[in-house]
Every structure is written in structure tokens, then in C-alpha cells.
Computed example of a mutant assay.
Amino acid sequence: MSEERIGVATVGGNPITLIGPELKVGDQAPEFTVNKDLTEEATLSDYNGKVKLISVVPSLDTRVCDAQTRRFNEEAAKLGSHVAVLTISVDLPFAQSRFCTVAGIENLDTLSDYKFHTFGKAYGVLIKELQLDMRSIFVIDEENTIRYVQYLKEMKEHPDYDAALEAVRSLL
């Protein structure tokens, strides 16, 4: 059974339970398997040798998640090919693809944690009550060591974009 962290975050001010460990700077990034589409999977290992900025959003169909994904898409274009920017949500791959087409998202990978929630459980962001991944940011270096992490305390708040981007730039 996975660790449960009760009351460490809220949705609209209501406490929620996060499943999985609270990862910290210096921890080895856990492996995960998510979906690119219904049949093709992606893992952390697929991005070996790159700096990884992982932007976790509950659902691309919400205002803050939309803004977060658009912001990191814009920044990804400036970071270069040595950086992989990933947006992970539990949205179905169809919905992610539609969102990217409509929003013009083409500089980052959208990945779905819908099938097994391995990302959410490994990174301590799976919301027990909602089966969504809690908004968070992880910056992982080329050797898969976590160099920056932000777990949001309230789902509806924006992450600290500048701090996350500075963490990425410090690794280049």
C-alpha cells in the first residue's frame, strides 16, 4: 500500500489526500510509465541525457492548467533541445491531443497518467479522492536527480514559473 499524506494540499480550500512519497531535492527521480496515446507509452528513461521539466496539471480543461501548459510551451521553445518539457495529467490522450491542436502546443510533450497512475503514485501527487494528479513541478537533471520540486498547497494556484525555469537554466 502506498503512503498517504493527509491534509497537505487543498482543492478550493477543502483538504485532500495525496498518495505517494513527498520527493525532495537530491532524491533520485522515480521511474514511471505514462501514455503518449492509447497504445504508446513513455517512461522517464526515454528522456535520459536531458534536463527534464515536468509540469503536472490536474486537467488541461481548466483555466490554471491551460495557462500553465501554455506558459511552459512558450518557455520550452527558448530552452533548446537539451531540455525536455513534459506536461503530465490524467486527461485521456485524445483530450490532450485536442487541447494541443487548439492551443498550438508544439514545444512540449503531453503525457497521460490515466491508465495506471504510476507517475502520480511515484511522485506523491495522486489525489486519492479525485484520482487526478495534483499541480506540481519537478526539474530533473541529466542523471535523473531531482533539482527542484514544488508541490502546490492549493490546486487552483499557479506554480512559481520563474523559480522552475531558473532551476532548469542553472543545469544548462
Results as ranks from 00 to 15, higher is better:
S2H: 14
E3N: 11
R5D: 02
G7T: 03
V8R: 12
G12Y: 11
G13C: 07
G13S: 08
P15K: 08
G26T: 08
Q28F: 09
A29V: 02
E31Q: 14
D37K: 11
A42W: 02
K50S: 02
K52Y: 00
L53E: 00
I54A: 01
V56L: 01
P58H: 05
S59C: 08
D61G: 14
T62W: 07
D66I: 07
A67N: 10
T69W: 07
T69D: 04
N73H: 10
N73T: 07
A76T: 07
S81D: 15
S81C: 04
V83K: 07
V85F: 06
V85P: 03
V85D: 02
T87Q: 06
S89H: 06
V90T: 15
F94M: 13
F99Q: 08
F99E: 04
C100L: 10
V102L: 15
G104A: 13
I105K: 09
I105F: 09
E106Y: 11
N107L: 11
N107W: 12
N107C: 12
D109T: 11
L111H: 06
D113A: 13
Y114D: 10
F116K: 15
F116D: 14
H117F: 15
G120S: 11
E129K: 11
L132Y: 10
R135C: 01
S136D: 02
E143V: 13
N144V: 07
T145L: 11
I146K: 04
R147N: 05
R147D: 00
Q150C: 02
Y151W: 04
E154N: 09
E154A: 06
K156P: 00
H158G: 03
A164C: 05
A167G: 05
L171P: 03
L171T: 02
